[in-house]
């Protein structure tokens, strides 16, 4: 299993990121595209392409999902950081309809910090959070990837969740 830190140096990380971005743009550009995109479906589609070895490397599905989840987390955190920076600089931007962006529902940067602390305490819990929260995977899918029971995944998720909520409130 690739660790998330190592993952960001993996060429597959860049490929997964680019592929997800390409798929998202394709979805968005369809006529009558809805205002949201089923990101999880995109992750599965990207796996379908990358996992088959289209890029010359074969990769385990569980590894790919971990990489995709980490890429997603990185992207969202970077985005939240940019939004914060814009706010601090008091930039007035006139945004077209397509560019109007919703504020993050939770403090993304704090969540990222808390998640890093969780990685220090229990790497598996952190991985489950990434898969569930950032990739949108169901417990059943995580169970398959981790090779444990769905019930165990659920219990681990609850531990991870209270850890994060407690840290966010601290």
């Amino acid at each position: 299993m690739t660790t998330p830190q190592a993952a960001s140096h993996d060429p597959l990380y860049a490929a997964a990121y680019a592929e997800l971005h390409r798929l998202a743009r394709r979805e968005r550009r369809r006529a009558n595209a809805p205002a949201t995109i089923n990101t999880t479906a995109l992750v599965h589609e990207a796996w379908f392409k990358l996992g088959r070895g289209d890029l010359g490397t074969r990769v385990a599905r569980s590894d790919f999902l971990a990489i995709a989840a980490h890429a997603m987390r990185q992207g969202l955190v970077d985005h939240a950081r940019r939004m914060n920076a814009d706010k601090r600089r008091h930039v007035t931007v006139t945004l077209g309809e397509a560019e109007r962006e919703p504020a993050a529902p939770v403090a993304m940067l704090e969540l990222d910090d808390a998640l890093r602390r969780l990685e220090g305490t229990d790497a598996r819990l952190a991985r489950i959070v990434e898969l569930h929260v950032f990739c949108g995977l169901e417990f059943r899918e995580i169970a398959e990837a981790e090779g444990i029971s769905e019930r165990s995944v659920f219990r681990l998720w609850r531990s991870a969740r209270v850890f994060l909520l407690d840290e966010l409130a601290a």
Binding site: E27, T36, A98, P102
Partner: peptide, 19 residues
Amino acid sequence: LAAEVSAWRDTLIASDAAK
């Protein structure tokens, strides 16, 4: 956490892709 972040992510990715 999961539902809130997911909804935000899906909207954000959609608007980013429209750019």
